[in-house]
């Protein structure tokens, strides 16, 4: 049952990314490139998504438990630490370079652009590389925020 919800949530998320144009790398770069002919339209995607989930989360904060699971796994990390800063810089650089973040890239796989397939494989390689790198973490800054 949880898998079914996950499938539906993934589909709904992907539909949102598709109709909003987040699956178009040129549009994303046009949004990020504030020095050129800046296209601010994609800010409405983030704005709409944040506002909608903010409202929904307010309701969930009052709930005892999720419908299908024992507890909510809200992220617990609080500190602004070095891994967060460096990770966000590296991620942002990659996002600006090609115009895809992980969600839209996965959603666009079926469109069959070779670059998208290469990009997704490289994401997995980058994630594997991170797993193989021994990083000392202060307590409380575990990878729970993703």
């Amino acid at each position: 049952m949880q898998s079914l919800i996950a499938l539906f949530a993934g589909l709904l998320f992907g539909l949102g990314l598709t109709v909003s144009g987040m699956i178009d790398p040129a549009k994303v770069q046009g949004f990020l490139d504030v020095t050129g002919r800046w296209d601010p339209r994609l800010a409405f995607v983030l704005g709409g998504a944040v506002l909608t989930s903010w409202i929904g989360f307010q309701i969930l904060f009052e709930a005892k438990r999720p419908v299908l699971a024992d507890s909510f796994t809200w992220p617990t990390a609080r500190q602004l630490d070095r891994p967060l800063v460096i990770g966000a810089i590296l991620f942002g650089a990659g996002w600006g370079l090609f115009g895809y973040c992980p969600g839209p890239a996965l959603a666009a796989l079926s469109l069959g652009h070779p670059q998208t397939i290469i990009f997704v494989i490289a994401i997995l390689a980058g994630m594997a590389a991170h797993r193989l790198t021994p990083v000392k973490r202060p307590p409380g800054s575990s990878r729970q925020n993703a």
């Binding site: 699956i23 590296l90 980058g126 991170h130």
Partner: peptide
């Protein structure tokens, strides 16, 4: 919507590595 690639295979590979490593670290 239109889906327009902005880079070739090399750019895609480099960007993907940055995104994969960076999102896990961050």
């Amino acid at each position: 919507p239109p889906v327009r690639m902005t880079g070739g295979a090399g750019i895609a590979a480099a960007a993907g590595l940055l995104v994969g490593y960076g999102t896990r670290l961050g």
